[in-house]
């Protein structure tokens, strides 16, 4: 080795031990050294502490504290060593142009164009067939990747399980009697047999206590005067903005608010959106009371529920 060294040193830089570039940054290296030693010892103790904590308990705060102290102590010590005690230079490195010479570029493009050119030009049919085959493979390979993922939408977004005469039930499947809700009461209801189903969720609100035979609760939209019964009104609970459950009912102002993006719907005026990003009223479910005094739907929703989509007319 000693024989080779002089030759190597001729090409590579050599520095004396007292070269200013090799001196530590710290004015008092021993003090920094003491701090780094202390820090690393604390780090070591932290890791030991983590090991003990893990075995005797599963206390998250102690685990984090010991691990954090361990990691930080070790890291701080090493960083202080690097910053204050190691050679600080400044050192310099030359940049070299990494782009090729013009001749090399020409050679590269010639290798592609000329060598490739004679091959492809001589056998155009082969080249064309290969391109056709590879392209076709690329297209058909995507078929299973895309089409097998799930079903086509079909009419799924247009329909719910609410039909004529669907019985309104609570989440637990309890039918709703006309006497169940006070004025100002709300209840999330589903068609019987579909409790918990997302598109069917409907919010039932009692706006007034109207005796049988009296005129129905006046609603703003024309043609819906008989959609309420005994002061009950029901709307789809899926927001027309992004489908969040519109579960926030302000009783005094008679507004439904969507907790996600704060669209505000006027319950008395057919749930038209008064404020916020929701574009359409919540679809309304026409209600009636059956002979046993249970609430039922007159019909399903007259439009798709939830957010807008392309196929919606």
């Amino acid at each position: 080795m000693s024989d080779e060294s002089p030759q190597l040193t001729g090409a590579l830089p050599v520095a004396a031990l007292d070269d200013p570039h090799l001196q530590p940054y710290a004015a008092h290296p021993e003090r920094v050294n003491a701090v780094a030693v202390l820090s690393m010892v604390v780090g070591f103790l932290g890791f030991i502490g983590f090991g003990i904590t893990f075995w005797i308990s599963d206390q998250v705060q102690w685990e984090a504290a010991t691990l954090g102290v361990g990691l930080f102590g070790l890291g701080f010590g090493v960083a202080a060593w690097g910053k204050y005690l190691m050679p600080q230079g400044p050192f310099v490195e030359e940049r070299h142009d990494f782009h090729s010479t013009e001749a090399e570029r020409d050679a590269m493009s010639a290798a592609v164009l000329e060598r490739g050119g004679i091959v492809v030009k001589r056998r155009k049919v082969l080249g064309g067939l290969f391109a056709l085959g590879a392209g076709t493979f690329g297209v058909v390979a995507a078929f299973p990747l895309i089409r097998s993922l799930g079903p086509k939408p079909g009419r799924a977004l247009f329909t719910t399980n609410w039909k004529k005469d669907s019985l309104l039930v609570s989440l637990e499947g309890r039918p709703v009697k006309v006497s169940d809700l006070d004025v100002g009461g709300v209840l999330t209801v589903f068609p019987k047999g579909f409790e918990g189903s997302s598109p069917d969720q409907t919010i039932l609100i009692r706006l007034a206590d109207i005796a049988p035979g009296e005129p129905p609760f006046p609603l703003a939209p024309p043609g819906r005067s008989d959609w309420t019964v005994r002061g009950y009104v029901a709307y789809s609970k899926m927001c027309t903005h992004l489908g969040c459950p519109v579960g926030l009912y302000q009783e005094q102002t008679q507004q439904l608010v969507c907790p996600c993006h704060q669209s505000i719907f006027n319950v008395v005026a057919g749930a038209i959106p008064e404020f916020g990003p929701a574009p359409r009223p919540l679809p309304q479910l026409p209600l009636k009371v059956d002979a046993q005094g249970f609430l039922r739907s007159q019909a399903g929703y007259d439009q798709p529920v939830g957010p807008g989509f392309w196929e919606r007319p």
């Binding site: 169940d180 006070d182 004025v183 100002g184 009461g185 709300v186 609100i205 302000q250 009783e251």
Partner: peptide, 11 residues
């Protein structure tokens, strides 16, 4: 109370 809906025993 206030803006809170009323939840009766039937609800």
């Amino acid at each position: 109370p206030g803006n809170m809906p009323h939840f009766s025993a039937g609800n």
